[in-house]
Design a protein around this nucleic acid. Structure first.
Length: 193
DNA sequence: CTTCAGATGCTCT
DNA sequence: GAGCATCTGAAGA
């Protein structure tokens, strides 16, 4: 399958967030190849979005990576113990990104389950199976992504995206966990299958 | 199924 | 010092 180009990311963030659904996310780590299908995303836009870490082009050590070129991974720590994976979008200097909120496993299930639950796939409960990749912190845990991977080039070999399927029934809604963001809390910038 | 508390540390004021 | 783009386990219905 063909790797997504930098031009794919170098576009309107909300459009990229919607089009990311159905794409494949590939993570190569310690000789293991993990492949997932993207099922849930959220767009964060610097210029008008109070929920965006770089709202108003606020430049701090944490947001610095968002100012770099499109097709870069932005990974930050949240609530002291979880990481969230974002894909930087729009031209360099526009600090926008798409949060990866949910995935479906395709390849490398054994390692992902071990990273999440410390057990083998056969030992998962039905509940655990449903909870494997349905949240941004879970995604990073399963894919062994931490702040050490912040700034990774998405056109490299450690973490990249490829074409996938073209999903039907794309749903849209308000983003999760940003009640503080005033009018931006109601922007319909969450996309899921 | 639901709610609820607690974990835990970085980030910015 | 306050708050955070979250998750889990326990308890109740």
């Amino acid at each position: 399958m063909c790797m997504l180009t930098r031009e794919f990311y170098n576009r309107d963030t909300v459009t990229v967030a919607r089009e990311l659904l159905g794409k494949r996310l590939i993570r190569n780590v310690d000789g293991d190849r993990l492949v997932c299908r993207i099922t849930e995303t959220e767009a964060y836009v610097a210029s008008i979005d109070k929920a965006c870490h770089a709202y108003g082009y606020r430049r701090t050590p944490r947001t610095e990576i968002m100012f770099s070129r499109p097709g870069t991974a932005y990974i930050y720590l949240i609530y002291g113990m979880y990481c969230c994976l974002n894909l930087v979008t729009e031209p360099e200097g526009e600090p926008c990104a798409v949060l990866i909120r949910g995935l479906e496993p395709i390849e490398g299930l054994e390692r992902m389950v071990h990273s999440r639950y410390g057990c083998a796939p056969d030992d998962m409960t039905a509940y655990q199976r449903r909870q494997l990749l349905n949240g941004p912190g879970k995604v990073c845990k399963a894919l062994s992504l931490t702040r050490e991977q912040n700034g990774l080039d998405l056109l490299g070999d450690k973490l990249y995206l490829t074409q996938g399927d073209t999903p039907e029934n794309i749903k849209t809604g308000k983003r999760i966990g940003i009640d503080y963001a005033e009018e931006a809390a109601d922007f319909p910038w969450r996309f899921y299958l």
